[in-house]
Amino acid sequence: MNKKVELQNLGVRNYKETWDYQELLFKRILDLKIKNRREKLNVETPNFLLMVEHPHVYTLGKNGDIENLLISKEELAKINATYYKINRGGDITYHGPGQLIGYPILDLDNFFTDIHKYLRFLEEVIILTLAEYDLKAERSEGETGVWLDVGTPFARKICAMGVRASRWVTMHGFALNVNTNLGYFDHIIPCGIKGKAVTSLNVELNRKEVPLAEVQEKVLKHFNHLFEAEFFKSETKSLKFTNKFK
Rank of each mutant, 00 (worst) to 15 (best):
D114F: 11
G102R: 05
G90N: 12
I101T: 06
F121P: 00
V125F: 01
R88C: 00
E124V: 15
Y94W: 07
P97T: 11
G102L: 04
I105E: 00
A81M: 11
Q99G: 03
Y94M: 15
I79H: 06
L119G: 00
L122F: 03
F121N: 12
P104L: 13
T113G: 10
L119C: 04
Y103T: 03
D91T: 07
E123C: 13
K85L: 13
L106A: 02
N80T: 08
I126G: 00
T82F: 05
I79K: 04
G98E: 02
E123L: 11
H95C: 12
I115K: 01
H95W: 06
I86T: 15
G89D: 05
K85R: 15
F121A: 14
I92S: 02
F121W: 12
E124F: 01
P104H: 11
N80H: 15
N80L: 11
T82P: 09
Q99H: 07
P97Y: 03
L122D: 03
F112Y: 14
H116P: 04
R88S: 03
G102D: 05
L108P: 00
P97A: 09
E124M: 11
F111N: 01
Y103L: 05
A81S: 13
Y83M: 12
K117Y: 08
A81N: 07
V125G: 06
Y84C: 10
K85E: 14
N87V: 08
L106P: 00
R120G: 10
T93P: 00
G98K: 03
H95F: 09
Y84K: 13
P104E: 13
Y118S: 06
N110R: 04
R88I: 07
L108S: 07
A81P: 10
N87L: 10
G90D: 11
I101Y: 04
K85C: 10
D114V: 15
I115M: 10
L108V: 13
V125S: 07
F121K: 12
Y84D: 11
E124L: 14
Y103S: 01
F111A: 03
G102C: 09
T93D: 07
I105L: 10
Y84T: 15
K85M: 12
L119E: 04
K117V: 15
Q99M: 09
L100Q: 04
G89Y: 02
D107Y: 04
T82D: 14
